[in-house]
Amino acid sequence: MKYILYALSLLFLFTSCQPEDKYLYEVNEVDVLPVNANKSKQKTIEQFVSILHANLFQKALSADEMVEIRKVIESIGDKELAYEILISNFMNKPGVIIPPDEDMRADIDEFLVDTYKRFFVRFPTEAEKAYMRNFIEADPNVTAELVYFSFALSNEYQFY
């Protein structure tokens, strides 16, 4: 009996640890990066202004006007402030194409997807969508124009 128990113990000891099976799915390992991580080149003033104009008016800016705007932006040291004034001027011009607020509030998710695509040339993540949706829903003063304004002022919009 004693020997049988020893034999069984040895048997369990050698059979208890099995080598782990390795599965190979033939998929390369990748680092997970933010969706906007590939944007590493800063836009020039000309690129920024012409893209901004196209986004807001959906038509190209003339070459003359682009040069003029570059000059006035260069003439102010705080670029964030300069762009803010420029965007405020654009918003005051006829021809700005912005969705009506009712449409935005009727389907905020669709508005956000369109806005991210228009300004950032990408889809929003679920987290971004959730935050922005909650923000818009929580504040009745937030209009589509103000959302556009914040996107135009953002750092991501300065890069491509």
């Binding site: 933010p34 935050y131 922005m132 923000f135 103000l146 959302v147 304004f149 914040s150």
Partner: peptide, 13 residues
């Protein structure tokens, strides 16, 4: 609200 949204967008970039 513009600055708050910008702050959020900048934090994600």
């Amino acid at each position: 609200p513009v600055y708050k949204m910008k702050y959020f967008l900048d934090n994600n970039f």
